[in-house]
Computed example of a mutant assay.
Amino acid sequence: MNFTAIFSDFKQLTKVGLSLSVVFSSLAGYLLAAEKIEISILLLLAIGGYLMVGASNAFNQIIEKDTDALMKRTMNRPLPTGRMHVSMALVIAISFTIVGLAILYSINPKSALFGAISIFLYTSIYTPLKAVTPLAVFVGAIPGAIPFMLGWVAATNQFSIEPGMLFLIQFFWQFPHFWAIAWLQYDEYKKAGFNLMPMGQKNKKAVIQIIIYTCCLIIVSVIPVLKLTGSFYIYPITAVILVALGSTMLYYAIKLYKHQTNKEARQLMLSSVLYITLIQVIYVVDKFLH
């Protein structure tokens, strides 16, 4: 087996794209909080964060090896195809966990603690719950919301209202984003015994939930304009831009309510990815204009 194929399997096992987006979030959180930017900590945070998410993804794929084999989207992953042995994946997952947490611990103990909570919740609670109840999405939203906050904790060694706010923003964002994916993958998920739509239904009631969470997301993302969230605050003009951004997501959610087709679900999913990327950039730019 050639090196390119092995590297490609390694990338699939640790979900490089997803891991990098998480690293992006934690670096944005760090830049938002840091009084003085230390490149060494940025690097440690990027590597530690990447290893943390890579470990979660690897554990997830070990647990879901058999269900992955049933779905088109995942059947070609290294474990269901047998290209990689479970023991090899376990070695990667465990070593990523140990090294990742050690690196986060070298920044400060609180960062390592949140990293450990994230891996534990994703692997031990969210992954097994997926086959049991749509409420798994709520559990999954917790580790999913940790990275943005983790960056702040890495910079300040404190958990306070500011990182709490960053956590809330990314927490509420998970729902419209993930349910849009669950809508698109509904039939595939069903084959594997997963039903992750709110209340287990793919209908207008589910989309009402998406709309509610999108509205909550827009509200929490502009709360810092009120200057009630400690040192994390934004200019009124920034708040206006964020409402406009969030309204794009809301627009697609309402379209999904009206038409209930995959086209709108895909538009909502893509607009949610754009939203979370831009909001983090906008917060950082706003901070440097203060």
Rank of each mutant, 00 (worst) to 15 (best):
F3E: 08
F3H: 13
F10G: 01
T14A: 09
T14C: 14
K15N: 07
S26F: 12
S26N: 15
A28E: 08
A28Q: 13
L32D: 02
E35P: 02
K36G: 10
E38D: 11
E38T: 13
I39R: 06
I41D: 12
I41Q: 07
L45I: 11
A46C: 11
Y50L: 15
A55M: 02
S56K: 06
S56L: 07
A58T: 14
I62D: 05
A69T: 01
A69H: 10
M71L: 07
M71D: 12
P78H: 12
L79G: 03
T81K: 14
G82S: 02
G82I: 11
M84Q: 01
H85Q: 15
A102M: 14
A102L: 14
S106Q: 10
N108Y: 03
G115S: 07
A116S: 10
I117N: 11
I119T: 04
L129P: 06
L129R: 02
A131G: 15
L135C: 10
L135H: 14
F138K: 06
A141S: 13
A145Q: 11
I146Y: 07
I146F: 14
M149Y: 11
L150Q: 08
N157L: 06
G164N: 09
L168V: 07
Q170E: 10
Q170M: 15
F172C: 10
F178D: 04
W183I: 06
Y186P: 03
D187S: 13
Y189L: 00
K190C: 00
A192T: 06
N203V: 02
K204L: 00
I210C: 00
I218A: 07
I219C: 08
S221L: 05
A239I: 10
A244H: 10
S247C: 15
Y251W: 07
A253L: 08
Y257E: 12
N262L: 05
A265Q: 01
S272K: 05
L274E: 04
Q280D: 01
V281W: 06
V285R: 01
